[in-house]
């Protein structure tokens, strides 16, 4: 099977400091990969390098495109990469304000992504927006409200709807449940899991929350100081961690 995404020796430094160093892995269709580590471990740098938001110093990010097959996204033209990020890729930011247009209605936020890939019929766009708002449990009488009038949890769900409406194949998520209270978080996790299964999505989820990765991710990558310390099946890494740092991380979780 061709991996959907193959990352080879990806390195990013900030001056003399290491962002992430020599990271390589393969992600297969339908897989969810969790990346965990403490603040400053390089997980967001890695995610942003893969998603094309940051230019890495060296390495390859090879994506299995629909038309041309596996292609290094770092060698693509800007136009090509932008098209990819509107169609096959999606990026869910930790702060929904970074991923939404706060002055445009909820429906408009979802519709904009559709229009970016060529949808022009207002009725169709609105219908799809209503359908997606329903899937993320936002009632349709809120479609004309601006996200600024939404709660944090609703904004996050709207951001997910906006990202998934074009049927992406790969979703990057940066702390998707960060800053949400636990009941909203549970609801969001349930939602993401259902969408991943029904749409056959692959996802890369960056988080510092081990409970989140246990529920969402099939595989886990542990990072520290820009390096990958340990990888494996999520439950294996959490239940039988091999590296000293992972053992420390797992044993530091507070029990409820």
């Amino acid at each position: 099977m061709t991996p959907l995404l193959a990352v080879n020796h990806l390195t990013k430094t900030y001056g003399g400091r290491i962002g992430c160093a020599d990271v390589s892995f393969k992600l297969y269709p339908g897989e969810v990969l969790g990346i965990v580590g403490e603040s400053g471990s390089g997980k967001s740098t890695l995610l942003n390098c893969m998603a094309g938001h940051l230019a890495p110093d060296s390495g390859e990010v090879i994506f299995d495109t629909r038309v041309e097959g596996p292609k290094d996204t770092l060698a693509m033209s800007e136009a090509e990469r932008r098209m990819l990020s509107r169609t096959d890729w999606a990026f869910v930011h930790q702060n929904p304000r970074d991923g939404l247009r706060m002055r445009v209605s909820a429906g408009g936020n979802v519709g904009e992504r559709l229009m970016a890939v060529g949808a022009r019929h207002y009725g169709t766009i609105r219908d799809q927006a209503v359908d997606w708002l329903e899937r993320v449990e936002i009632s349709d009488d809120r479609i004309d409200d601006r996200p600024a009038a939404f709660s944090g949890g609703m904004q996050q769900r709207l951001q997910i709807a906006r990202n998934l409406v074009t049927g992406p194949r790969l979703v990057f998520m940066d702390e998707p449940t960060g800053g949400l209270d636990v009941s909203v978080q549970a609801r969001l996790l349930d939602l993401i899991r259902g969408l991943v299964r029904r749409m056959g999505l692959s996802a890369i989820v960056v988080t510092h929350d081990l409970a989140v990765v246990r529920l969402l991710a099939d595989r886990l990558m542990v990072m520290k100081d820009g390096h990958v310390i340990e990888t494996g099946l999520t439950d294996q890494v959490l239940d039988d961690p091999q590296a000293a740092y992972t053992q420390l991380l797992v044993s530091s979780v507070l029990q409820v």
Binding site: L233, D235, D239, D240, Q242
Partner: peptide
């Protein structure tokens, strides 16, 4: 049991 399930290495 856990090794058989791949949960322990």
């Amino acid at each position: 049991m856990r090794i058989l399930y791949g949960n322990y290495l």
